[in-house]
Design a binder for these strands. Structure first.
Length: 377
RNA sequence: GGGGAGGUACCAGAGCGGUCAAAUGGGGCAGACUGUAAAUCUGUUGGCUAAGCCUUCGGAGGUUCGAAUCCUCCCCUCCCCA
């Protein structure tokens, strides 16, 4: 079983703290989950991920891991945990995001989605059943239902049809889930995903149907795909108010530090996003006082620490001028330090959020933080 | 001393009579990035009183309606031979 216990709730908002217990350990919520698509968080060592960023759970991706290294190798390794040596919880995305991001090289049908591999062009059919099987082979603690992450903008007819398909796929996923056993002796949960684009009635329908399934946790997908931020908050709020309070709520693919604080206030418990790692590799540094583009000339002689108050090794070990130098010179330490810092920052922000919820001052704290976090330095 | 090649924007390097303020790379500067086809991609990179004008292709002259491109002289690099 995957257990979730709500511990503290905020009076002024829907924010709450909680603990998710999995067979690979506990996860304190609200939490940010670093993305490790191919079984590795890009530019990061697990040692640093554990010690410096304090990551509690990471993501993997069904589509990518299926293509490389493939389920045969993963099974022979004894699952992804054994393969990559990450002994804490792992959540795998189902490939639903690739239905969106690789839209130009897939064919979507009622039965499932046929992808043309971005690596060698070979064709692969992803049905809901197949996606569950693959996630069983990967051995993720939390598996995601196969869905279509709809693009934005998305006309209502398309969104409505897509939602029907996603729900049928969900039922097939659950059937396959119940018909199969974990391969490595520990429990695997399955989270359904609410869809419906930016249409309130579709989202309500989706959230209600999914709530009735009584899954161990529930996710909201199809957001942060280019819609106005206010739409994202509006839909998140709408859905959070319907999804069961006693189960973790996971907002997929979100987001910026500000997005996360706003959505914690709406009742979200789990986040993941490539932003701290990808943008970090591209020179964007998130700090308590705002966002830095470390490649900018203005940092060339700023010898102050990356984050003087920061608690990760890299924050005080390296100066902004040095980090800029590494980026300008194309040294791989640049992206590594930036990724470590950004993840440490994201995880620190979650920790602060939890503390402020516990202390009953979340909303005030959030207001003061939001102003600083979005500042461009 | 003899023979040959060449000097183009920050660098490398195309262009060899008009469509050239000058391809392409690199470098510089800036921007983008939200369940990762990303250590990626995009824009910009002579000056200005800016849909136009001015000064640029080693230097000085010349031919021409028009020259980075043709001619003359000069300066400077590099290669081969002695």
């Amino acid at each position: 079983m995957l257990r979730f216990q709500v511990q503290n709730t905020d009076n002024a908002s829907s924010a709450r703290t909680g603990v998710i217990t999995t067979d690979h350990g506990v996860i304190e919520t609200p939490i940010f989950m670093p993305v490790g698509t191919l079984g590795a968080v890009k530019a990061m060592h697990f040692k640093d991920l554990l010690e410096d960023t304090k990551a509690q759970i990471i993501l993997g991706n069904t589509y990518h891991l299926y293509l490389r290294p493939g389920t045969d190798i993963l099974e022979r390794a004894g699952g992804l945990h054994r393969f990559n040596g990450w002994n804490k919880p792992i959540l795998t995305d189902s490939g639903g995001y690739q239905v969106y991001s690789l839209a130009h090289r897939r064919k979507l049908e009622q039965e499932g989605v046929t992808f043309q591999s971005h690596i060698d062009g070979s064709r692969h059919m992803f049905s809901p059943e197949r996606v569950i099987d693959i996630q069983r082979s990967i051995g993720a603690d939390i598996m995601m239902a196969f869905d279509e992450c709809t693009p934005y903008p998305c006309d209502k007819n398309y969104a409505s049809d897509s939602l029907k398909t996603t729900h049928q796929w969900l039922l097939r996923c659950m059937k396959q889930y119940k018909a199969t056993e974990p391969k490595y002796g520990y429990h695997q949960a399955l989270f359904p995903i609410v869809q419906g684009s930016v249409y309130p009635d579709l989202r309500i329908k989706s959230a209600e149907e999914i709530s009735a399934l009584n899954a161990e946790g529930n996710a909201i997908g199809g957001l942060s795909v280019g819609e106005p931020i206010e739409k994202m908050y509006e839909i998140t709020q709408l859905v959070c108010n319907i999804l069961p309070k006693d189960k973790p709520r996971y907002l997929m693919g979100v987001g910026t530090p500000v997005n996360m604080l706003e959505c914690i206030a709406l009742g979200i418990d789990m986040f993941d996003c490539v932003m701290p790692t990808r943008n970090g590799r591209n020179g964007m540094i998130f700090t308590r006082n705002g966002i830095i583009n470390i490649k900018n000339e203005k940092w060339k002689d700023d010898f102050s620490p990356i984050e003087a108050e920061g608690n990760s090794f890299v924050d005080t070990q390296y100066s902004k001028a040095y980090l800029r130098h590494l980026f300008v010179a194309g040294e791989m330490n640049g992206p590594m330090i930036a990724s470590t810092h950004n993840l440490a920052f994201y995880l620190w922000l979650m920790n602060e959020a939890r503390n402020n919820i516990r202390n009953g001052v979340f909303s005030e704290w959030k207001s003061s933080m939001v102003k600083k976090l979005a500042t461009r330095l």
